[in-house]
Design a binder for these strands. Structure first.
Lengths: 230, 230
DNA sequence: CAAAACCGCGAACGCTGTTAGCAGTTTACA
DNA sequence: TGTAAACTGCTAACAGCGTTCGCGGTTTTG
């Protein structure tokens, strides 16, 4: 049985996920493109034209190779997306040294996350899929837990808080990207009195600049009320 | 020019969106399936197997019709998703009568939204796409604005707050759905000291029950600080 | 030197959203 | 009333998608 050629990329016995798997085999010819090159090309495509532009054929084409060849390096498109996410999360490094209250530090990190999401608008969507955390993502989690060390709360609460902050940051990124996108044109406002009144009002000032900071500070106190341990 | 048959579903001159377009023409035979039937079938499919299960062929098949026939009622799959979203948002009706502070009322609405997202786990994803708001979505917006009437803030801030609350509710829904999904199995924790310490700790109590309420109250005060009008 | 392992490729499979053309049916108008 | 226009549903097809398979050529191991 089985003179069939096996593919290391979908070897379930030795390394089941993309993170525990050799980037290349030890026997054959050297790959013409490294894993990093592939992921970088995919990220460039996503930055330019969104996640939808990251098709196996497009990524392969950008590197001058055939679509099927990608499966020598990855076992699926999901793997590629996981790699893309982790690569970009790596841009959060290095993590700044401790300075100020833990709230201040967490807020600084959140700001850097926001900038990251604006640099790569597809990131929130890619993260929203169920994904297997890579080394950079784990490092990010670790750094967050480090910041939260002085907080007297259970780990479950801390995890929840970290996830929620990440989520809210992505909401801010999305709302900034979609500002003015939603259109109420050609809508009969007669049936919606409050909506009509809102549009009748003189255009108000744009949201305060410190909205991000204020929102996140409120969120943190709500999530990690320090007066109740565990 | 043009003895070509025209399709009312993609008539751009009379009604460009799915909301301003007759459900059926006035001339031909009665459609064997109404728009409501189609959307209901699609929602059922999504509820059962996720958004990915909502393919044109699957929806058509569930109703015993051919895939192409759907385009007599819709001009694209995006239209179908818009209709699905609006149909489900309609489940928020009727909106309860005013009772308690505006925070209390908003929180009640948020709870109903959370229940809605748990009933239809695909809803957040479907909403995340850029979508054209339908009548039920507009009614929801209107109700939110009505609740926020006593708040002294600009309309832009109120819109932002509504969007953010909706987003946070969807984050809670997602985190509840994905609880225990993330796996740190087979990860070498040596490089992540805080993560390792977190797992070494005895498992802490699950997050407080009033976490949702506490978080949203904090968020609302952060977003709509009543001491600063406009 | 032979065997095993690996790389890249082209072709194919089944799926997707979407379009075109073809009956057959119903309505509007002269 | 007759006829033309409009409408419905169907089959077939197109391009694109993720993925798999088997091939020839290359590199390493024993």
């Amino acid at each position: 049985m089985s003179g069939a050629p096996r593919n290391p990329a979908d070897d379930d016995s030795a390394g089941r996920s993309i993170w525990t798997r050799p980037q290349r085999g030890a026997r054959g010819p050297a790959p013409t493109h490294s894993r990093d090159e592939i992921v970088a090309a995919a990220v460039a495509l996503a930055d330019a034209d969104g996640l939808g532009a990251v098709s196996m054929r497009a990524v392969a084409g950008a590197l001058g190779m055939a679509a099927g060849s990608l499966y020598r390096h990855l076992s699926s498109r999901d793997d590629l997306l996981d790699l893309m996410v982790d690569r970009c999360v790596g841009e959060l490094r290095p993590y700044p040294a401790a300075d100020g209250t833990w709230q201040d530090q967490f807020l600084l990190l959140a700001r850097r996350q926001l900038a990251l999401y604006q640099r790569h608008p597809w990131l929130p969507d890619a993260i929203a899929r169920r994904m297997v955390p890579g080394p950079n993502t784990l490092a990010h989690f670790d750094a967050c837990l480090g910041l939260l060390q002085p907080v007297r709360a259970g780990v479950a609460a801390k995890f929840e808080a970290i996830a929620m902050v990440t989520g809210v940051v992505s909401l801010f990124a999305r709302s900034a990207a979609a500002a003015g996108t939603v259109t109420f044109d050609h809508v009969d406002l007669a049936a919606y009195p409050h909506l009509a009144a809102a549009f009748a009002e003189p255009p108000s000032a744009p949201p305060a600049e410190d909205l991000f900071e204020r929102t996140l500070r409120s969120l943190l106190t709500g999530l990690l009320a320090t007066d109740r341990p565990g």
